[in-house]
């Protein structure tokens, strides 16, 4: 059980006129291998919750346990904790500082007092993990890289500590669609090969739906629910009450189902949607074949049209306007 919180509450500037309840009795369990998405409006307590996981924000009331470490005592093995939980903040590229990429990525391991030859290896490993050419970038200044590359270097700087749990606060904010896709691809790769448990805060439902196996909905400092995406995005009441947008894929599925296509409304991933559409079309053809072979022939010809739907699904949000 890597992360357990129980009745976790937090107040900013307590006992002052500016006191603000940021967390209110949050009880949450994140299991090994989870890809947890955290959603909620600005000020709903997402970042405060995430800050607790590596003791950047200390426990005021309630309990937090991370990978068997109780975070309540004042004195903690911060190095152990912070190398267990890698935290990637919003716009992580703004934290780059050192003269070369190599040294910047090695900052974490150096603080952990790891021997130099192992640091070099970790730096190579994490730069390759984020898809950068190690020999090509290691001696360059982080400030002369492009925006997307900088973000990768910053991510590598966290990965170089070899965390078991990765916490990401809006990792795709401010990137173009391609950069977003690349970063998400990279996060999936990290989860697969390096760091099995990932927690991602995001405002983008498409990203959340496509990657997470559990979604925590926060509102006004409280945890509303933790549900798998297939369930959350079919709960119209929850979506409406907390102003949560549906992912494009689910909207397309709903629009098609409204028009009579026989597909489930709970689809959240592009591939599933495409498969469901193909299956539904095939089913329609099979049903039609015995009665009117002529029309069936026509329908068979229609199958390639699913490619168009697939394209539409790939393009995501913009295209689904036509389905509304």
């Amino acid at each position: 059980m890597p992360i357990v919180t129980e009745q976790l509450s937090y107040v900013y500037s307590p006992k002052s006129p500016f006191a603000k309840q940021a967390l209110n009795g949050v009880t949450l369990t994140v299991a090994d291998g989870d890809f947890l998405g955290v959603i909620g409006h600005t000020g709903s307590g997402k970042s405060t919750l995430a800050g607790h996981f590596n003791a950047l924000i200390r426990v005021q009331s309630g309990r937090v346990e991370v990978d068997g470490i109780d975070l309540r005592p004042k004195k903690l093995d911060f190095k152990l904790l912070r190398s267990t939980v890698g935290m990637v903040f919003q716009y992580p590229e703004y934290q780059l500082f050192d003269e070369s990429v190599e040294r910047d990525v090695g900052f974490g391991p150096r603080n952990l007092k790891i021997p130099p030859d192992e640091i070099a290896e970790r730096v190579r490993e994490s730069l390759e993990m984020v898809g950068l050419d190690y020999e090509g970038v290691r001696r360059r200044s982080p400030f002369e890289l492009s925006g997307g590359q900088k973000r990768r270097v910053a991510l590598a700087g966290v990965l170089a500590m070899r965390p078991k749990i990765l916490v990401l606060d809006e990792p795709t904010a401010g990137l173009d669609p391609r950069g977003k896709a690349e970063i998400l691809e990279l996060i999936r790769r990290v989860k697969k090969y390096m760091c099995p448990t990932v927690i991602m805060i995001s405002h983008n439902m498409d990203e959340i739906a496509a990657n997470c196996n559990k979604i925590a909905v926060m509102s006004g400092g409280s945890l509303v629910c933790v549900l798998p995406p297939e369930e959350l995005f079919t709960r119209g009441d929850l979506l409406k009450e907390h102003g949560i947008e549906m992912p494009a894929v689910t909207r397309i599925a709903n629009a098609l189902a409204d028009r009579g296509l026989d597909i489930p409304r709970s689809l959240v991933r592009e591939d599933d949607l495409v498969a469901a559409i193909v299956a539904a079309k095939r089913g329609a053809i099979k049903a039609a074949t015995p009665a009117k072979p002529e029309r069936a022939q026509k329908a068979e010809n229609n199958i390639p049209h699913t490619d168009a739907v697939k394209d539409a699904a790939k393009k995501g949000g913009d295209e689904c306007v036509t389905f509304r």
Partner: peptide, 16 residues
Amino acid sequence: EETDKIISAQKARCAE
């Protein structure tokens, strides 16, 4: 605010 954020980010990389 910016300073707070950067300090947090570096602390997360075990800066002391």
